[in-house]
């Protein structure tokens, strides 16, 4: 899927999304940034509740291309600025991380995730 396909998911709102043709091949879910840093695959989307600037830094360093901020948390302006600078797309949703992850799994065609 591509970054733009995230915007099409129900209840997902694009806060910042410019490199819409970038490929997304995988997803990761986590709030501990060290864990994300060490384990998130590159070219992925991160599902998290960590709505602050440091999440963008971690995403950029780990090669994550988009963030989905869950539980209706709002994105502070310095986070948005950082995202623009680092070419990271940000989406917000009312969904929990579980619900958002399910939608992304369907879009990625990865409903079999974890069964191998």
């Amino acid at each position: 899927m591509h970054v733009q396909d995230l915007a099409a998911l129900e209840g997902f709102k694009a806060e910042h999304s410019e490199l819409e043709n970038w490929e997304i091949n995988d997803a990761y879910c986590g709030d501990l940034l060290s864990d994300v840093m060490g384990n998130a695959p590159s070219e992925s989307v991160l599902v998290t509740i960590q709505a602050h600037k440091n999440t963008v830094a971690v995403a950029s360093l780990a090669g994550i291309r988009a963030l989905v901020i869950c539980n209706n948390r709002s994105v502070p302006s310095d986070m948005l600025e950082a995202a623009k600078e680092e070419d990271i797309s940000i989406f917000t949703t009312k969904d929990t991380q579980f619900e958002a992850s399910c939608k992304i799994a369907r879009a990625l065609g990865r409903l079999d995730a974890g069964t191998d």
Binding site: L32, L33, S34, D35, N54
Partner: peptide, 15 residues
Amino acid sequence: SLGFGAGMGLPNVKS
């Protein structure tokens, strides 16, 4: 609460 302090930092570096 900021997402740090998971106790993974130094082990991550070493790995």
